[in-house]
Design a protein around this nucleic acid. Structure first.
Lengths: 241, 241
DNA sequence: TCTGATGGATTGTCTGTCAATCTGGTTGAC
DNA sequence: GTCAACCAGATTGACAGACAATCCATCAGA
């Protein structure tokens, strides 16, 4: 018995990985806001590990683009400029386009089926306004798409891009009509894959991401306006003291 | 004066970055061989920094895919399996294809000119068998291509892929006729960009990488055979003791 | 030949230290 | 009242040392 456990357990999860995952999750989930400072001591208390270990975790997150570390100022949650956002969405469109193409070419019927089903699930969850269900279905969709594409390097690259763009993950669910449209786009991808139409799969993926990018840039502009307003107010209050 | 220096100097290069760059360079240059173990203490002596700092640097290199860290065994120079090599070259072909397309679409005439010139320089260097000149020209080529593509996220992504595939960087210069052929391919890219023919630029880039991948997989297979032979010999010697 | 124990080497993590640097607020001159 | 210089506290960058956990090659014994 114990030997079986030893065979599946050995992941040998390290304290550092836990801390890292915890911080990553907090950023991706939006608990830690872009621009927010993350003093090492604070992260240590938050995750219950020492400063040495925190620093290692932070370095990892830095190279994923989730945190920015400026010398002698310490880590902050990364802030995306408009240009970076554009670049990332453009890159994402390229990669997902290729994923769609490869999945249509190489995907098994089982994977195509999984793709279609995940779209159905997403739609149902959305109709019931179960946000978590929507997100799960979305994850399932990408798992199937990238599984079908059969390229691990591509999967990894897209994974970090998704994390960096996690800021905008909720944008669609709050924009009237966008999710419904999104479902249509995703279904187009799944159907292209099921039909083994590589060109259509690529086009559909690109189209989907371009639509998402458009919305994200609007949201970004709004946040920037909001932030600027906050700044003005804060200055006003400050001067009022 | 000093204030001007303070404005441009502040890069404030850290000891960690130096160590990191040193290790990265050693791996990319092939001074440290794939599979070789890299005990923290050894890296510390090599780079002249403490273990804490080494570990941070290693984490960064790990997330770039240059080193692999197995728990309680420490870092080793990453070894590429055949599948990983295939995946990476496939991804690289996608990304460089897109770079070629974007560069043809957006590149300025100046950048197109730089592209063409770097091909000429490369050819000249090759005819004189100046390997370092070839590598410099190659770097210039990619700088121009990615500059023209105007997407920083793309540039970064391709940068790490190039590093991971650095193992095969010298393959072409040792394969009779390959470099000459490579020059032809690169010129095709540059000319497509100069002609602002996006589709041709994409095709030419993909073709170039597919040719490089083919060669790399041959080299990889040979190395694997060589390694297997080494292993056999080592075992034989060992048994002979 | 296989099994199991053993000891050295290495990693994972923490704590504490110290200099370098940043930051926000205070002081003082104009 | 404004602005520059300055100062003290906070934080980071980097190190050394310590200790348990783990790995691994080796060797004794069945």
């Amino acid at each position: 018995m114990s030997s079986y456990a030893a065979l599946s357990d050995p992941p040998a999860i390290s304290v550092r990985q836990i801390a890292e995952e915890q911080i990553r999750a907090a950023i991706v989930a939006g608990d830690l806001l872009p621009g927010q400072r993350l003093p090492e001591r604070m992260l240590g208390e938050l995750t219950g590990v020492g400063r040495t270990t925190v620093r290692e975790a932070v370095r990892q997150l830095e190279s994923e683009g989730l945190v920015t570390v400026v010398p002698h100022r310490g880590p902050t949650v990364a802030v995306l400029t408009e240009q970076e956002t554009r670049d990332l969405y453009e890159l994402r469109a390229m990669l997902e386009g290729q994923a769609g193409r490869l999945c249509a070419q190489r995907g098994t019927p089982v994977q195509a089926e999984a793709l279609l089903r995940s779209v159905d699930t997403l739609e149902q969850a959305w109709l019931r306004r179960q946000i978590s269900g929507v997100m799960d279905a979305n994850a399932a969709f990408y798992a199937a798409l990238l599984g079908g594409a059969g390229n691990d390097a591509l999967r990894q690259a897209l994974g970090t891009i998704h994390n960096r763009l996690a800021l905008f993950r909720f944008s669609s669910t709050r924009w009237p009509g966008r999710t419904a449209q999104s479902v249509v786009e995703l279904r187009a991808i799944a159907e292209a894959v099921a039909a083994r139409d590589a060109a259509a799969g690529e086009r559909a993926c690109i189209h989907h991401i371009e639509a998402a990018a458009e919305l994200a840039l609007i949201v970004l502009a709004e946040r920037a306006r909001g932030a600027a307003q906050d700044r003005r107010q804060r200055i006003a209050i400050h001067q009022g003291d």
